[in-house]
Simulated assay, not measured.
Amino acid sequence: MKVLPLYFLLIVLILLEPTTAKVFRVNKMTCQTLDSSLCHFKTCEVVHKENGRAALYFNEVIDYKKPIDDVLLNLGVFKILKNRRFQFVNETLDFCAFSRQLMFATGIFGFVMAPILNISNINFSCPLQQSNIIFNGFVIDENTLKEIPIPNGVYMFNIRAAYMKRWATDVKIYASRVEKYS
């Protein structure tokens, strides 16, 4: 009989916990440039709206002047417990392959990419030739990511982008999954 690793059991317990939470309350967002020769952030802010709702705004300026035909996106979701972080999602997406087949997004990227199509100026084609990537108010409300069955708690969504095989950006969004906005 094989013994399951402790982290696997923890993930199963986290995912099987009753999911009565309905909304995410965003606490903060940080944007970090990992390679300043490729890009930098002009703005990075969370605008808190009524009753705990929020909108995320950021403007990434791409300093690389040639077309970018190698883009990787990585999404990690962590549950934060006191002094530990447990990662239970780690997905990487080849943006150029994805842009050719938009309807075939799988996993958590399928949940995340649909609302992004509506609020960003991203040209979903490769090579990327734009100089600014603007997320103009990604609204976090009752309808945002409601399909993701995760329990109440504090989470960190970590989104990293690599251009030309070099990690360029690291965006972290800290949010709490709660019953309702107060």
Rank of each mutant, 00 (worst) to 15 (best):
H48G: 03
G76R: 12
K65L: 13
T43K: 06
R25N: 05
M156E: 15
F88R: 06
S120H: 04
V139I: 07
K82H: 04
F78R: 04
F8S: 12
T106W: 03
F138Q: 01
E50G: 04
F24H: 07
N90K: 12
E60Y: 03
V12S: 15
V139H: 04
V46E: 01
M156F: 07
L102I: 11
A175M: 08
M103D: 14
L10Y: 13
Y181M: 03
K146L: 13
M164E: 14
S182Y: 10
V171E: 07
R166F: 04
C44K: 00
K82C: 00
C44W: 02
E147C: 11
D69Y: 08
Y181R: 00
F135I: 10
K22N: 11
I173V: 14
V12D: 11
I68K: 01
T92F: 01
K165H: 09
G153L: 03
V47E: 11
V71E: 00
E50K: 11
N143Y: 08
V139N: 02
N158Y: 06
C126A: 06
F24K: 05
E17V: 15
V23W: 02
I80R: 09
V26G: 01
L10S: 13
F109W: 10
L15D: 09
C96M: 09
K65A: 08
F109D: 00
L56P: 00
Y181N: 00
F98Y: 15
V46I: 13
Q87C: 13
D35N: 14
V71M: 10
S37H: 12
F157I: 08
Q32W: 10
D70S: 11
L81V: 12
D35F: 07
L93N: 06
F86I: 14
L15I: 15
T33I: 07
K49L: 13
N123S: 12
E45F: 06
M164I: 14
E147K: 14
I62Y: 01
P149R: 12
E147H: 13
A55W: 01
L128D: 02
N74C: 13
L117Y: 09
L72I: 14
I108D: 00
L9T: 11
P115V: 06
R53N: 03
Q87H: 07
N74L: 05
N152F: 03
F98S: 05
R160A: 08
S176C: 07
A161K: 05
N143R: 11
W167I: 05
F111P: 02
A55Q: 06
G76A: 15
A175Q: 02
I14M: 14
C44T: 07
G137Y: 02
K180C: 06
F41V: 05
P5L: 12
E142I: 04
L6D: 12
K66C: 09
V12N: 10
T106M: 14
I80H: 07
I122D: 02
L15C: 14
Y163E: 02
F138P: 00
G110Q: 09
L72R: 13
L102S: 04
I173N: 03
V89I: 15
V77F: 10
I173W: 03
T43E: 10
N59E: 11
I150K: 08
